[in-house]
Nucleic acid binder design. Structure first.
Lengths: 86, 86, 86, 86
DNA sequence: GCGCATTGATGGCTGC
DNA sequence: GCAGCCATCAATGCGC
């Protein structure tokens, strides 16, 4: 009897999860529609996505560790690393 | 002057996208909470996720191409293919 | 002078990474070719991939926690959860 | 008898795929080692990955559609879109 | 040209 | 408490 799982609680949990996933799927559908509309109005969807992604990053990175990245880039340049560091 | 993009329309589109993404993020947060609650009640989250995933597949696959997969499995078994087809 | 990165070491590390990534890309190309060949011989690529994936799982899961998954499935069935736990 | 699959050919194909996947897995292991070594030498792995990714992109994008992206950025700026296009 | 499948990147979780 | 690992999510590339 010990390997007996409380079904009704599990049902409830699973139901909540599936409800949330359904809502998420719906919203993703909406996103797709917005992009479709954008394209219909002559915008380049790929670029728009890049822009959104950029804004998402900027929001979190707070001016960023760009500094360190620059430093590495310079180090790479100084040392050579020509032709894709082959 | 042709490479001039209608800013206000773009703003609107981007805003709608970002709104949708925010809602999706919130729902994903909710999902995480539900799983946390499940875990707190002694359920195995990994298994639960497998179950949800399974139900998702079943919903779409409608009895499935299981047939063909079985056929391939049998072919593999018949011909040998022991120890991971090494 | 402290924010000075040793360029030659970085170059070496990056070069090794890029070498590895190039080899991986090549092997992925080979995989694609094998699948193309399979398709040319009348096999269903999608099913084959499912099979390979299945074997990969089986290899790691070692008979698995199928037990617990079954238990959850049963609990769900017992309690109802009809129509996708709506 | 028609739903009979040539087992030995399938075995061979699957075996080749699994061989390739094993090699790829090994190389990915090597990559992980290189990054671990980098970290041990004081490099910031996350930044290094960003750098590698950047170089990967640069290689393919050939100077890029940066132009259009800039245009969109400007349009956005002109029109307002303050505070994350809320 | 669209949708899907794989691959790469980020973030959460677990073990030390 | 942090580092390493794993699982999820976004993004690119391929096939239909």
């Amino acid at each position: 009897m010990s390997d007996h799982v409380d079904g009704s609680q599990l049902v409830s949990l699973i139901a909540r999860i599936e409800r949330l996933e359904a809502e998420i799927a719906a919203l993703n559908g909406d996103k797709r529609e917005v992009y479709a509309e954008a394209k219909a109005n002559g915008y380049d969807v790929k670029i728009m996505k890049a822009l959104v992604s950029e804004r998402r990053k900027d929001a979190s990175d707070l001016a960023e560790q760009e500094t360190l990245l620059d430093l590495y880039r310079q180090a790479l340049t100084r040392a050579g690393a020509h032709a894709r560091a082959a």
